[in-house]
Design a protein around this nucleic acid. Structure first.
Lengths: 207, 207
DNA sequence: CCGTTGTATGTTGTATACAAAATATCGTAT
DNA sequence: ATACGATATTTTGTATACAACATACAACGG
């Protein structure tokens, strides 16, 4: 419940969380709430300051500049592995997901595209077969979900994203590991570029 | 306290942790203990199974095979960054640490070498200036500390490790980012090779 | 008038008591 | 004798009550 409220900004970044108030809102006592906050703190979603309080994490542009290159490296590695060791069945399941992406993009349905994109990356990690790599990437992705801004909302980004996915699928089909890695790295870094543009544009407007 | 007890295997891998017993041993009540276990669980040091209990994580050889390549990738990236953007002062501080490594190696002091090696890698990450990269690497390192086996104990590994560090320093001096990355990756993967050898040898002996 | 210290208030941190779930034990029946 | 089931016990999960700490404000002294 807390994760959900943080992701959709009902609990806004930077906001202080009063345990008593929050516990009552959730209809539980402070004990399990505190255990939950400890977990979220370890995940980096909230900042737990001893004797001070609990604050929802605020991701700065600088954080994004740091995290995305790491994601690019790790997901690039995933793509490399999958291209090298994929089975025909795995490729098939990825093709199915990619087709969904194509359809959602054609329909201009950004939300469904976003969801399917998430599933696709998850499936890809599954195929890579490295459990810990999956955990590390998952942890970082949880963090990135803090920034509600979706780069896909940017003019032309959806089309570009789809093109990158097409290139990735091609590389996977011809088992070109190096190409797959490069495409995936580019895919992630392009998202960062789009996000940066979005955030800086926002700054001009609001601050 | 718990982390310490887990690392030095006073709480052994696989062992079940009884909350009441453990709380009494630590001289605290179950409430703060449970909060601590939640944190350790998020770090991956213990496995918290709902309504079942808490178990100290056991790292298998397979886990190591998965984690070390990730570390190699990430620390390789660190080395790349540092080689590219290091200041003269940073290089100096790294040189100082490397000299310590040389001395401890010459004295055959494996423990001090291990400690200094830890500080060196930490310092290197500091120089890279990517806070999140440091966090991710730190999280993985905490996990690796679960396996008490030090590859340095293996015959000839100390010498090899030192040689790798020398090569790294040379790459940093001449600002050869690609070489630094390659050396670092090799350094981590060589540790995995050594560990694998150690573990498989143990298996033959014990079962 | 500013700085410091004491006190009051509120929030975090901890302990204890109780409820719910899982496991172990014992008895019974086949 | 073994398998199944009910009960008893242990252990996890939750709620409440209390203690410790931090902050804000006010009073006092310089």
């Amino acid at each position: 419940m807390l994760r959900g409220q943080i992701y959709d900004h009902r609990l806004a970044p930077g906001q202080r969380l009063d345990e008593a108030v929050l516990a009552e809102q959730l209809g539980i006592s402070r004990t399990p709430l505190r255990e939950a906050l400890k977990v979220l703190s370890a995940e980096g979603l909230v900042d737990l300051q001893p004797h001070k309080g609990c604050f929802v994490t605020e991701l700065t542009l600088r954080d994004l500049e740091e995290i995305f290159p790491i994601m690019a490296t790790l997901e690039g590695r995933v793509a490399h592995e999958v291209a090298a060791k994929r089975t025909a069945a795995q490729l098939k399941s990825l093709d199915v997901l990619h087709d969904k992406l194509e359809r959602h993009a054609a329909a201009g349905d950004v939300n469904r595209y976003y969801e399917t994109n998430y599933v696709f990356h998850d499936q890809l990690q599954e195929c890579a077969g490295n459990r810990w790599l999956q955990i590390v990437i998952g942890d970082l992705r949880k963090l990135l979900k803090l920034s509600r801004h979706h780069s896909l909302r940017l003019e032309g980004r959806l089309t570009a994203s789809l093109a990158e996915h097409r290139a990735l699928m091609q590389a996977l089909h011809r088992q070109d590991a190096d190409a797959a890695e490069q495409v995936m790295r580019g895919h992630l870094l392009a998202q960062l570029d789009a996000l940066r543009e979005l955030l800086l544009a926002n700054e001009v407007v609001h601050g």
